[in-house]
Design a protein around this nucleic acid. Structure first.
Lengths: 142, 142
DNA sequence: ATTAATCCGAGTATAACGCTCGGTTTTATT
DNA sequence: AATAAAACCGAGCGTTATACTCGGATTAAT
């Protein structure tokens, strides 16, 4: 039931961009330094984020990444889905007709409810919320 | 964010016991057959369930497992915790003083809220609930 | 005595995770 | 024009966790 580091890093990295992009594209090197995450691993993560159109890369010197939507319009659910796939506690097999055994059905309802509750929290928390929270808590580039 | 098969199997197995224990201890072989789960893997799972006092084993011929509390008093949260440890979406490090970086704090709140919402659903669903649901859905030994 | 079961410690193949490496391309700056 | 900083990209790779299996010992009903 654990979120991989990929998902956690992605959210933390996105918060940094939300906080810093006012000064232009935010390079991965900066995020890596601030958050103590491997820059090369971040590259992989940002491939996913870019494919899902959550960020856009600016190449060349002075380049980096920008949010492709205002932070109010990006939820943590969006970010997690981009790097980890569907938010679900079990492999999703609505279609698969292996539902002949009763208890599978019974427990499936349960897992769907659990997954849904996770999604609600994540889809209800935007990057703007996290960024604001970070600012309140004395965030000052240090 | 996926639950391992261990957690899923554990819940399914416990539902079977809840449904069948009126006729005496339920052997793993029976559960394995009904749910199509490896009997030896079930053994491991039931070690955990027993250690957490959710079931008690009856040895010898005609033996098997019984719930050690009425099914109303056993939640799916209890079962999952028994076999997978704490229900949390991140490694729990309240104590660890590595919380100097703001955003860790910011995101930690989020992950705690997500974890808590999962726990609420699981702790609110008892074995009795699942068993009843299974009976309603035409469960008749087949 | 036999058989059906739990109990228990090890081992093991596969897959996922958490990266690293080496390179290409693009662009601002000098 | 040269340099440097950055995104972009494909591959590889060690470690850990998952999802089991194996071989036995013990217990108890028939």
């Amino acid at each position: 039931m654990k979120l991989s580091t990929k998902g956690q890093y992605a959210v933390r990295a996105m918060v940094v961009i939300a906080l810093e992009e006012h000064a232009g594209p935010v390079p991965l090197r900066m995020i890596a330094g601030m958050e103590d995450i491997s820059e090369q691993y971040l590259e992989q993560i940002f491939m996913d984020l870019r494919k899902e159109k959550l960020v856009e890369g600016v190449r060349g010197a002075k380049g980096g990444y920008l949010l492709s939507r205002p932070p109010e319009k990006i939820t943590t659910g969006d970010i997690v889905r981009a790097v980890e796939g569907p938010i679900s506690v079990v492999e999703c097999d609505h279609a698969a007709g292996q539902c002949e055994r009763v208890h599978i059905c019974v427990t499936r309802d349960l897992w769907l409810r659990v997954s849904e509750s996770m999604r609600q929290v994540m889809d209800d928390t935007s990057l703007a919320d996290l960024a604001e929270c970070a600012r309140e808590r004395n965030y000052k580039g240090e």
